[in-house]
C-alpha cells in the first residue's frame, strides 16, 4: 500500500513580464507516491523548474492546488511554508553551496535555530558525510571540491532535516557522464536505504532511464505523457516523447546513416531495411533465426541496441532482409503477428 506525498491539481502559473502574461504552467495534474523516484522531463523552457519550485512554494501557483502529505500548500502563510520546506530537500544544477562556509558549515546551515546542541549537530553531519561518502571533506571549502563532490555536499545539506522527499532540479546537468552516474547511484541508494521519495527534473532521457520508476513528459507547461518508465519507453504515445527516447538509443542513429547514404545501410535491389523493436518479453524469442529458417530469407543484422529497463528488455535491431519478394512478405507478416513492431526504413 503506497501513499501519495505530492499531488497537484490544475496547477496554473503565469508570469507577467512588461504587462504581458506568459503562461508557464497550464493545468498540471500529477501524483507522486511515497518512496518512488519520479522523473519530470522536458526541453528547456518547458516549465520544469517552475513546477518543482511550486512544490515547495518558492514559486506561488496562481491557480490550482498542491498537496504535500495531504495539506494544500497553495496560499499558506510564509511561516507555515517554511515548516513545510524543512520537510522537502532540494538540490540544484549549480549546487548553490555557500562559498564562504566549509562543507560542515554548509550542511549545518539549515539547522540554524533548530534547537539542536553542538554535539547533536556534529553527530548528524558526521552521519551525512558518511552517507554521501565524503567523510574527509568536512573542513574543505566548496572551491576546493569537484562538481560531483559539491553535489554530494548539497545532497547532505538537503537531507539534514530528515526530509521525506528530495527535489532535484537538473542535479546532474553540470556534471560529466561518469560523475553523473555516481550521483545517480547515490540517489538510488538514498531511495532504497532511507525510503526517500525523489523527484528528478531533467532534460536527459538517459537520467530517467537510469533511475526513475515513473516519468511525466512536460511540454509548454502541460504534461503530455505520463506512465511508468518501461511503458513510456516501450510504447511512447507522443512525438516529443519519442524524440527524447531516441536520444538514449543507438537505433536513432540509423536515420542519419540513411540520410548520409552510409555504406552500412546501402541496399541491393529487393532488399529491405527494417527496424524491429522489441516490447516486453518478445525479445526472448529466436525471431531472426526462425524467420530465416522458415521463410528462406537472409537477415543481416546491421546493428542493435537492447537494454534492460526495470528488469525488462527494451530496444531493437536494424536488419537488412534479402530474398524472394514473396518470402520477405511472408516473413514480415509473421513478425507482425508476433506483436513485434516492424518499421520498413528503406527499400532497395
Amino acid at each position: 500500500m503506497t501513499s501519495e506525498i505530492i499531488r497537484t491539481e490544475h496547477v496554473v502559473k503565469t508570469f507577467t513580464v512588461d504587462k504581458k502574461a506568459h503562461s508557464v504552467l497550464k493545468d498540471v495534474n500529477l501524483s507522486i507516491e511515497t518512496g518512488e523516484i519520479f522523473g519530470i522531463i522536458g526541453y528547456s523552457g518547458a516549465g520544469k523548474s517552475t513546477l518543482v519550485r511550486c512544490f515547495n512554494g518558492i514559486e506561488k501557483a496562481n491557480e490550482g492546488s498542491i498537496f504535500f502529505e495531504g495539506q494544500n500548500i497553495v496560499g499558506l502563510k510564509s511561516r507555515e511554508l517554511r515548516a513545510i520546506r524543512r520537510k522537502i530537500g532540494m538540490i540544484f544544477q549549480q549546487f548553490n553551496l555557500m562559498p564562504s562556509r566549509t562543507v560542515f558549515g554548509n550542511i549545518a546551515l539549515p539547522l540554524k535555530h533548530s534547537g539542536l546542541s553542538k554535539q547533536q549537530i556534529n553527530k548528524r553531519i558526521t552521519e551525512l558525510l558518511e552517507l554521501v561518502d565524503l567523510p574527509d571533506k568536512r573542513d574543505a571549502y566548496p572551491s576546493q571540491l569537484s562538481g560531483g563532490q559539491k553535489q554530494r555536499v548539497a545532497i547532505a545539506r538537503a537531507l539534514v532535516n530528515h526530509p521525506k522527499i528530495l527535489l532535484c532540479d537538473e542535479a546532474t546537468s553540470a556534471l560529466d557522464p561518469k560523475t553523473t552516474k555516481s550521483i545517480l547511484y547515490l540517489l538510488k541508494k538514498l531511495n532504497k536505504e532511507l525510503g526517500l521519495t525523489i523527484v528528478v527534473i531533467t532534460h536527459e532521457m538517459s537520467v530517467v532511464k537510469e533511475i526513475c520508476q515513473k516519468v511525466s513528459v512536460l511540454d509548454k507547461g502541460k504534461i503530455i505523457e505520463h506512465g511508468d518508465v518501461y511503458s513510456v519507453f516501450s510504447n511512447p504515445q507522443q512525438e516529443l516523447t519519442r524524440s527524447f527516447i531516441e536520444t538514449t538509443s543507438a537505433l536513432g542513429s540509423v536515420k542519419a546513416l540513411i540520410e548520409t547514404q552510409s555504406p552500412v545501410v546501402q541496399l541491393q535491389p529487393g532488399q529491405l531495411l527494417l527496424k524491429i523493436s522489441y516490447t516486453t518479453s518478445s525479445v526472448s524469442e529466436p525471431l531472426i533465426s526462425y524467420i530465416s529458417r522458415t521463410f528462406h530469407v537472409d537477415a543481416n543484422i546491421v546493428f542493435g541496441d537492447i537494454q534492460i529497463l526495470s528488469g525488462n528488455p527494451l530496444g531493437g535491431l536494424i536488419v537488412i532482409l534479402s530474398g524472394q519478394k514473396s518470402a520477405i512478405d511472408r516473413a514480415l507478416e509473421y513478425v507482425k503477428q508476433r506483436h513485434v513492431a516492424v518499421e520498413v526504413l528503406n527499400h532497395g
Binding site: 524543512r86 532540494m90 548553490n96 539549515p110 545539506r157
Partner: peptide
C-alpha cells in the same frame, strides 16, 4: 541561486 537555496532550506 544561494538565496534560492536559502529559501528552499526553510530559512
Amino acid at each position: 541561486g544561494l538565496i534560492e537555496s536559502g529559501i528552499a532550506m526553510g530559512l
